[in-house]
Design a protein around this nucleic acid. Sequence first.
DNA 1: GACAAATAGTAAAACGTTTTACTAGATGTA
DNA 2: TACATCTAGTAAAACGTTTTACTATTTGTC
Lengths: 349, 349
Amino acid sequence: MKKSNRVTITDVARLAEVSVSTVSVILKDPENNRFPEVTRRRVLDAVKELQYQPAVYAQQMRGKRLHVIGLIIPDLTNHFYPEVTSGFTEQANILGYNVILLNSNNSIGQEQSFAETLIAMRVAGVAICGVYTIDEREKQLIQRLQSQGIPVVRVDRYEEDNISPYVGIDNYSAGYAMTEELLQGGHTAIACVVPDEPVHIVAERQRGYVAAMANRGLNPIICGFRNGDAQSLSQVVERLWHADERPTALFTPGGDMDAIGCIRAADALAIRVPDDLSIAGFDDIYVASVVRPALTTIRQPKYEMGKQSMGLLYKLIKREKLTSERILLPFEYIRRHSTINLTDVCLIP
Amino acid sequence: MKKSNRVTITDVARLAEVSVSTVSVILKDPENNRFPEVTRRRVLDAVKELQYQPAVYAQQMRGKRLHVIGLIIPDLTNHFYPEVTSGFTEQANILGYNVILLNSNNSIGQEQSFAETLIAMRVAGVAICGVYTIDEREKQLIQRLQSQGIPVVRVDRYEEDNISPYVGIDNYSAGYAMTEELLQGGHTAIACVVPDEPVHIVAERQRGYVAAMANRGLNPIICGFRNGDAQSLSQVVERLWHADERPTALFTPGGDMDAIGCIRAADALAIRVPDDLSIAGFDDIYVASVVRPALTTIRQPKYEMGKQSMGLLYKLIKREKLTSERILLPFEYIRRHSTINLTDVCLIP
DNA sequence: GACAAATAGTAAAACGTTTTACTAGATGTA
DNA sequence: TACATCTAGTAAAACGTTTTACTATTTGTC
């Protein structure tokens, strides 16, 4: 009478009429001729008959590393992350790892509890898109993982500190570049619409915007809205529209979702986009190309970002020497129909 | 000199100057007065100081079930799945489980290899959105998991067999309902555009379409295209447009992404949607509301579907009696601007 | 025929935790 | 005093695998 329905190496040994060690040795390298063909056959047949699959936890006990990676992201329903995740997990699978996806829902408490679970599981590594990179607890969390011998990389969201390697883009330059494009399109009154508590990388993009404006001697127009609150966003658009110095363009460093929110708000207010108001986003998620008017934006290499993060993490796990602690990927300005060149317009009459 | 940097229960015992068993007993229930306050303090302090976290694998060895669930989906970048995943993982976290997300990329081989990994890890349960529910290998895969004592639920994609419980919608009725709406809108020439090798649930929707057409004595117009091939989809739209009996409406049971592909194709051919051609999708993913014209579609309760799947799986894991082996959730017809009532149009002149 | 070397296989320890059954000493009871 | 009971704690086995070092048998060599 068996205790459980799980088949163990002992069951295989019994069926093949050899010792447990023999099974283990043969399974380790079935081609090895440490044992004669006939014995190997017998064991392999028993394995097949019983559909035996060694228990990972027992192997872990003997010091084998678990081939699982934890990937913590802040919000699965933001279309940015599935693409990053996709690149990450595909690369992980290629390298022989499985991925545990943990959706922190923008809660740092969740993140902390996830981290404990990952430590308890002794995962091989962790990649993290932190909730707030600015928060002190975020740093502690990364260091806690590292103190348990678990390598960590940050993906997309990072700060220029030295606590862990990261993969992302140069957000300052990207913010600068987008602003510069709008400026070259003849816009001078450009508003920057950002969430109330921007994560560090968004603040960087904003810094780029400010610098580009200053470079032309223009005053920045910065408007905050409550993160994730469509109505608050709407109010900002309305307020800007009725302001003394009405902007001709609007940039949302927080992402394309914010820009789409602005387009919706403009629709509701009968503001024509881009004729009355140009709107530019960030990220180039799939919807950006599908929404009407199609969104002018900065394309982040999302899939690549996930892929490279996993590559970097792999090197950390394997203790390979890193060529760099940080990987900055190229971004790309994507011109679509939600922005307009004021100069072109003036030539038409 | 320590062998590894991982802290074990032995380290805690040493620091607290008690035996390993004492630590274990106290940690199991710190409030329990099996030991005097002073000893419990000493142990708990040591735990805190060393930041000890018991190794899951050692607990597993002693028979404790791993609180991890495998969720296999066919394509993360299809926006349908992140929403299902989101509902699933949130519910899982509430119930004390973590989720391993496995993206099979529509490859049944990948799926099989994932299943082996999940067995090796001895996960508590598996939820699966199968690549092809019709495929015999899919059935074998589910049965293989079950034979290892791992409960399985199917999510969204299922067949009416009895090999495992499932959560989804009544796809036949949904296909019927959408067709009926179009018919009531005065359309009689309605084409059904489906992928070449439809999964079972898509075939069911198509069956609903055929039935609704037959009910009015109308002939079904069914067009296949190569799955995932935008150009093939384009050709279908063009062919339909130039057919003898040109359809006035078009239904894509394969999902909203197909419908959006058709809108794009129509755009390119200067066919006006919905004035010249009504287009209806399926699923109501986020983009459906954002694309222009906004898509008429059938809303699936995606988040709820994920949530309920996890709930059902939990019951299986806990060996609770099920009220039903299958959960069918309600769907909803969503009218937007990509379809038109022919009757309304005629009244305008 | 004596010894060395190769072959075929195994026993046992180790990994980190939980659990069961135990002990030694203190306290209570008649 | 003699025994029972309680208190505070521990020793040791078990879980499933891998690995090291071992044994017993066969084969080869002179």
